[in-house]
């Protein structure tokens, strides 16, 4: 029984990691249609932010708390820079965007290698996040519980912004019908830039969180980028709730397969499930109804 709950939590936790990685993409890819291959590198930037902050603030706990908003800022600024310099020139050329951002990803990896060195760096976990918490039915690692809560907060915050603020209304307006939004006096350029800032910033937060679980190195982002796209595609383009369901669904599926078979087989099985699912429902779990042609 303990193993079952442990595994269920492992699935939820994996789902929350996928969700954090995919949430920003759900905005930039899902809402704006930009295939940003450098999204993973924004996560990497967030992870290195946590590393640098730890160099300045000795207390790992305070450093982590400071790193989260700072990681958001760094990731967001990198995204904004990319949008201003390159991506806005190719909004109607998805294939070109893919290649250009992939190139940017490689450049960012090399920059990280040159600045921080090729080997992984060590980001210490705060003492209150190492060890496990007894939830009654199972003992779960504290760091994973923290990431689960963080992802729920991030999704909640994003949902609030999208539904309750003028900015959110503008974003949704531009996504649903760009021309009409522009006619109504909304600056679509400004909205694009802000959306990209938020989406990339979320990648930065994901990067900070990932330092609690895995390695912090130049190629951190490449480990997650494919899974993140998979989640967004399976969840349905343009719908945050689809991304949430897909992330937790795939996480639990992966953990269940991995427990009953092996990690390699589980990976294959999850891909197979997504492929079959997309054959039946190419638009993903949810699809947005829109009159725009994009």
């Amino acid at each position: 029984m303990e193993a079952l709950f442990g595994q269920l939590f492992a699935g939820l936790s994996l789902g929350s990691v996928l969700l954090l990685a995919a949430l920003g993409l759900a905005l930039t890819f899902g809402q704006m249609g930009v295939i940003n291959m450098a999204h993973g590198e924004f996560m990497m930037a967030g992870a290195y932010t946590a590393f640098v902050v730890q160099g300045v603030i000795a207390d790992a706990g305070i450093a982590l708390v400071v790193s989260i908003p700072l990681g958001f800022g760094i990731g967001g600024l990198l995204g904004l820079l990319l949008e201003l310099t390159l991506i806005h020139r190719m909004y109607n050329r998805p294939l070109d965007t893919l290649l250009v951002t992939w190139g940017v990803a490689l450049i960012l990896q090399q920059v990280a290698r040159d600045v921080f060195g090729a080997p992984n760096v060590d980001v210490r976990s705060p003492s209150w996040l190492s060890g496990s918490v007894d939830l009654g039915v199972a003992e779960v690692p504290a760091s994973r519980l923290f990431i689960l809560v963080l992802s729920v907060v991030a999704v909640g915050g994003l949902a609030l912004v999208l539904t309750k603020t003028p900015l959110g209304r503008r974003i949704r307006g531009v996504v649903q019908n760009r021309d009409l939004a522009e006619t109504a006096g909304i600056s679509t350029r400004g909205t694009d830039r802000l959306t990209f800032f938020i989406g990339s910033g979320l990648a930065g937060i994901a990067g900070v969180a990932l330092t609690l679980l895995g390695s912090t190195g130049p190629t951190l982002g490449t480990n997650y980028i494919v899974d993140a796209f998979l989640v967004v595609v399976a969840g349905g383009i343009g719908q945050i709730k689809g991304t949430v369901i897909a992330a937790f669904g795939l996480g639990i599926l992966q953990a269940a397969f991995e427990y009953s078979t092996t990690a390699s087989i589980a990976k294959v099985a999850v891909f197979a499930v997504v492929v079959v699912f997309l054959q039946i429902r190419p638009q993903g779990i949810f699809s947005i109804r829109t009159r725009s042609l994009a």
């Binding site: 442990g6 492992a10 895995g214 427990y259 390699s264």
Partner: peptide, 20 residues
């Protein structure tokens, strides 16, 4: 006996198995 694909980053399940 458990194998993880190269570059595998999530060891929750494998560690659960080890623990069990």
């Amino acid at each position: 006996e458990e194998y993880a694909p190269l570059g595998h980053t999530d060891f929750a399940t494998i560690v659960n198995k080890v623990k069990g």
